[in-house]
Amino acid sequence: MTVMPAELDQAAVWAWLADVADPEIPVISVVDLGIVRAVEVAHDSVTVTLTPTYSGCPATHVIEAAVREALQAHVEDVRIVTRLSPAWTTDWLSDEGRRKLQGYGIAPPAQQVIDISALRGGLAAAVSRRAGIGPTAVPCPHCGSTHTELTSQFGSTPCKALYRCRACREPFDYFKCH
């Protein structure tokens, strides 16, 4: 069904977008993920601005197609704009999204990202071998223990690392800070 232009408002579009699941982690929506940067409504068209997570993430195209499909159920003219800057960061994950990740067995990012503003502090500090592997504990999403360890800096998708819990012995994915 196509709504009349008068009924088309931003809140409605955001609500429709909140039903578009991330193809890799279907419990969170593209809104939870923080990649929807702007929604513009004009007469009978909608423009959605998306910011990709990782440059090579294969889900990027799937997400665009899913957003288009979801909105075209309501509006015929859907435009999608890709915006690179400012670059996506896990700080944009919603609180709701973090809770859903936890419930799904993926530990959400444990700390705020220092981000590339750290550039001003010198590039060398950011790549100290211990940067990002510091004392911040990643709680196990299964039993809550912080007695966990990193097994691999990369996991099943670019956005995750592999951990294991030394208390309950379960391995788990960690949505790494980015």
């Binding site: 990782y54 440059s55 690179l84 590339i116 790549v127 990002g132 800096q153 990369f154």
Partner: peptide, 18 residues
């Protein structure tokens, strides 16, 4: 813009390879 986006990924690469 492209560099700022890439740099986040490259930082992680360098930590790992180092």
């Amino acid at each position: 813009e492209i560099a700022a986006k890439s740099l986040k990924e490259i930082t992680y690469h360098l930590r790992r390879s180092g």
